[in-house]
Every structure is written in structure tokens, then in C-alpha cells.
Design a protein around this nucleic acid. Structure first.
Lengths: 136, 136
DNA sequence: GCCCATTTGTCCGTATGTATA
DNA sequence: TTATACATACGGACAAATGGG
């Protein structure tokens, strides 16, 4: 499979799909680095900006993380903290505000879980390392 | 408040902050269009690319939605469907796969809620129009 | 239905700054 | 210190979608 410049699907999206397949196939282990943007641009014969668009898409869907100066890697799996939610509650999810993102040290593509309970403050949990245990 | 090109905070981020403030102040109602990228670029005297970076940040945090050919608008609030979750369950949140994004017609910056229950199929709900009612 | 102006999307280029190793 | 890699910011050009007339 390769890139078709004549396709109606944008190149950066085709490239993101190709990289996603390689990631899911296990070609890059979690925590392992992908090739550099320049390298990928050479391999697929596209501009670096196009590569960056593809990597941005993968970041925003939580597939990879990127560290300035160091490169991109498959998103490492965190240990999951199971948070018990007693009693009746409302649970929602959303993207963090920029303040929450800083405070909780959230990477791009990481939502938060929000727990509302009667008479209590709202709880906000990072979704990349939290599961809720609810009910009963 | 204005943009300081000499700041250590990137221009596109300063611009995103400025626009976020204007949105939160109610200058643009939900569903109401923001000025065009070109217009914003002129107003703040920055390149269109910088404006696009700022708008992308706002999209990915769920603050706005953008429609090709039509512009960006403050994210309209959906009616929330409350989904009752009976019994014990595990609840998580993550960004949708590209397939889920298409199927559920999710806009950028919209996570999904995932409900795991013993002996049942996993349930996936769009977080921009779903809340879970859990417990008891 | 069609045309047209507007607007966003895609893709490329260059240059410079900053973080990492 | 040096080299590599990503981040930011500007520019231009054309494609594609929208909406109004």
C-alpha cells in the first residue's frame, strides 16, 4: 500500500492511515520512536508539513505522543488507577481546558472523565490513566 | 490585552487565549460564526497559518467547530441524552478511532465514553451528547 | 440549476527558535 | 558543544465546499 497523489483523500490523511496501520501491526512498540519527520517525508516523498499534519492527526486521536527535539513515539500505556464511585452519580467526558491540561500533565489527545455527585465537588480524572468503577 | 511577539508564549497560543476569552465572554454565541481566518489575521496582524494553528487548538479542546467553506463557530450545545447504567460497570473515556468518528459523526475535540459491563458488549457513547447516570 | 465570491483545506517552500541527546 | 529533531511563523498557490444571488 502506498500514497496516491491523485486520490480524493488528502495525502496527509493517507499518510496517517499508513502510519496507523504500521503502529497497529506492532512495527513500533509503545514508547518506541517513529522515524523523524524529515525521514518520513523522504520515505513517502511528501513535504515535511504534510508529515506534520499526519502526525498531528495521530496525536489528536491519542495514538502517539510527540516530544520536541526527541521525536514521536507510540503512546505508552499508563498503569490504570481504578477509582471507585459510590452511590448515584453523573459521568461525562470532555477535552481538558488548557489549565487542566497543564495541571494534570495531559498529552494531546487525552480527554478527562468528569464525575458529578449530589452535594460534592466535581471530580476530574485524566482518561489515559483512570477508569471508574461504578454501581452496586 | 494584545499580542506580544517578543513573548516566550507562541503567538498562536496567545491568539487562542485571546479568542477563548472573547468566546467565554459571550461575544460569539454558540452556533454563531467567528470572523474568517483572513479577517482574524488582519485584525491581529499575524499570518493566516498562525490563525489556523490557534483555531486548531480551540477545535481540539472542543471550544469551536469548523466547517469547510463556511467558517468556525462556537461549539453548539447538543441536547444531552442521559444513559442509565445499571449494576456494576467500568467506565473509561478516549478519543474515537477514525472509523468511530465517521460513524458517530463526531467533530474534532469530541471524546467517547466507554462502558464495560460483565458479559455484555462494550458500549461507546459520544461525549458531546451523552451523560451516564450510574450507581444505586 | 448555475455562477460567483467567500472561506476553509491542502501542499509546498523558507527561515529561525528551542529542546533533546 | 554539536548535531538532530520538533515548534513556530511567515509566504504563496491551488482545490474544494459553502452560501447567496
Amino acid at each position: 500500500m502506498s500514497i496516491d497523489p491523485g486520490s480524493y483523500t488528502p495525502i496527509y490523511r493517507q499518510l496517517a492511515d499508513l502510519l496507523r496501520v504500521r503502529i497497529e501491526a506492532g512495527e513500533f512498540a509503545p514508547g518506541e520512536s517513529l522515524p523523524s519527520e524529515t525521514r518520513i517525508a523522504q520515505e513517502y516523498e511528501v513535504g515535511r508539513d504534510t508529515v506534520r499534519d499526519a502526525l498531528a492527526a495521530l496525536r489528536n486521536e491519542g495514538a502517539i505522543i510527540t516530544v520536541k527535539g526527541a521525536g514521536s513515539q507510540v503512546r505508552p500505556q499508563h498503569d490504570v488507577a481504578v477509582v471507585r464511585v459510590d452511590g448515584r452519580a453523573r459521568v461525562a467526558a470532555r477535552m481538558p481546558s488548557s489549565a487542566e491540561k497543564r495541571q494534570l500533565k495531559l498529552t494531546d489527545g487525552t480527554p478527562v472523565l468528569v464525575v458529578h455527585r449530589e452535594g460534592r465537588d466535581e471530580e476530574v480524572h485524566p482518561a489515559d490513566r483512570t477508569q471508574l468503577d461504578v454501581g452496586d
